[in-house]
């Protein structure tokens, strides 16, 4: 009986030791992995940091302006082309050029008519 108890203790001890060793190895491996992940993250963060600086450099307003001028057929909107909602004529309201009902001229007259009056008041 006594021997059996001793045997059990020894067995339990060795099993514990083995398991502990096993866990320890796994933990080491995981720690190694996490270290790797952390250094990857750090490297990426640093790369992002550098890229942010480059992004800022590439977004220099003078460069953007030059690119826009070269590639886009857009120009700043002059103030007289923007009018308030209140200044828009009602859809039913008779307009000066009622005879022509080409859709293209409709918006054009809407925009230029108030602009002309704006210019007139300024002089």
């Amino acid at each position: 009986m006594r021997r059996f108890v001793i045997f059990c203790w020894i067995l339990a001890g060795s099993v514990t030791a083995l398991t502990l060793f096993q866990i320890k190895q796994e933990v080491l491996e995981l720690e190694h992995g996490i270290k790797q992940v952390h250094s990857d993250i750090l490297r990426d963060q640093e790369a992002i940091h550098v890229l942010e600086a480059e992004w800022s450099y590439l977004n220099h307003p003078a460069r953007i302006a030059a690119l826009a001028e070269h590639h886009l057929q857009l120009a700043p909107i002059p103030a007289e082309r923007i009018i308030g909602f209140a200044d828009l004529p009602f859809p039913g309201e008779p307009q000066e050029e009622e005879g022509k009902d080409e859709p293209a001229t409709g918006p054009a007259t809407l925009v230029t008519a108030p602009a002309a009056t704006l210019g007139a008041t300024n002089r």
Partner: peptide, 14 residues
């Protein structure tokens, strides 16, 4: 004892 090197950068910078 874990190597907590990388930080969450959403609240600050590198």
């Amino acid at each position: 004892h874990e190597p907590s090197i990388a930080r969450d950068l959403s609240s600050g910078g590198l």
